[in-house]
Design a protein around this nucleic acid. Structure first.
Lengths: 237, 237
DNA sequence: TCAAAAGTGTTCTACTTACACCCATGC
DNA sequence: GCATGGGTGTAAGTAGAACACTTTTGA
């Protein structure tokens, strides 16, 4: 390592969370309204600073619990990447380590646990992007890309659902996150064939109309083999 | 964001590079021998500290150029993730942002550009892992996983080769990184069918034995459609 | 009996795989 | 010629897409 004359920059490290869930059959992200400068009143990703000895994962888990009120260890949580561009935070040298989290549908936005208001905001179609504080629009975009890719090879789709769910619910997760229509019969076969992805609970769920559906829970698999591939990858990742 | 009584930890941010290349038909990684404490004399990933206004990517690019002597903008370079576990560096609060870089075969290890000796070390089979300084063994493992996965969907295999290469050379990249045997005839067809992956230069390369092979250069594609899938994913990542 | 959603069968196509085989060069 | 590696042909097996169809419930 070359030792420059200038000393290394001292950074504060923030952990920012892209928390996705499914509400009204749409992919939604948890945003907070900033309660102080900079960007006062603007929407932002929830987050907080790292204080050793708490490491990045622990900080992210704690923030996730504070924001959702759920047990962080039950939820999917993974690091996205680090953002440290000069000027990304007007307060100075603050690097952000972004995390992707996935939560099942929560009854109400969890407010009052933080200084500012928390809210679920639909992701696709709407122009959430431009209004976010800091570089959080780019982080949200990266989180969405990661979530879309991970649906293919990891059983995280079930993390969007509750403890028990139907195959149709699972299919609507794929449809909402990928933004495509998925053929129900083929999806049914594919998903039941992947070993360890989902297990029957033995119970049924009756809806106002139609044949009752079997209920499933998450299986033990940590990787989907064979993977669930999205249809037309011709035009973008 | 909750404001704790304790102030946020102040970190120095290091950028550490996992630089892969192909030498002797094997995947090799660039390591440096540390010239001072901590871990004096031990092998480590090359790296350096971030000094604003230079951002992470720029720091990584500069380090890559210093270590390889090549133009950084011509090489593949992407961020892996951030490591900030308490105690990972005895000197104190130092977070590391790891990058994956891919370089074509360099004639000699580039030494003398840094305080310590640089060397190429084979990755697969050998027990490089245990001997590395800091948490660099884990970082190297993550870099390898990322490289293996990216070979499937991105045209980075060509980054291991020089400006012009034969399809067999390209195939040996896949074989070395994935650690599997790839059927030559099928590989040939597949790789020539993917639009924009490789282009003929019009030249031929004669070897001591056998029919001369057509030479190719990288094409304009940024994503491989359809992807190159590794064979038996049943027992791997 | 009808609507609606779950679940099954079937066909067509596209791709992977395995491997036989031909081509072009140096010796 | 013949060994060597480049490149082509081809047939079997597998997986995805499309969609017709049957099943099971509530109203």
């Amino acid at each position: 390592m070359i030792e420059s004359v200038r000393p290394p920059t001292l950074f504060r490290l923030a952990v920012d969370l892209v928390i996705f869930t499914m509400r009204d059959e749409r992919l939604q992200v948890l945003l907070v309204e900033r309660g102080k400068e900079p960007f006062l009143g603007r929407a932002a990703l929830p987050g907080g600073f790292v204080r050793l000895p708490e490491d990045l994962d622990a900080t992210a888990t704690r923030e996730l619990e504070e924001e959702t009120g759920l047990e962080g260890r039950d939820l999917h949580l993974e690091q996205l990447r680090c953002y440290a561009r000069e000027g990304r935070d007007p307060r100075g040298a603050i690097a952000s380590v972004a995390y992707l989290a996935i939560a099942p549908n929560l009854p109400t936005p969890v407010a009052g646990t933080d200084a500012a208001r928390a809210m679920w905001v639909p992701v696709l179609g709407d122009k959430v992007d431009r209004s976010l504080a800091f570089d959080h629009a780019a982080i949200l975009r990266d989180g969405l890309d990661r979530a879309r890719a991970k649906l293919e090879s990891m059983p995280i789709a079930a993390s969007f659902c509750g403890a028990a769910f139907t195959i149709s619910e699972l299919r609507r997760v794929y449809e909402a996150v990928w933004g495509v229509r998925v053929d129900a019969p083929n999806f049914y076969r594919k998903v039941t064939k992947i070993e360890g992805f989902i297990e029957e609970t033995g119970e049924l769920q009756s809806l106002p109309a139609g044949r009752p559906a079997k209920l499933y829970r998450r299986g033990p698999a940590t990787i989907l083999q064979p993977p669930m591939l999205r249809p037309g990858r011709s035009s973008g990742t």
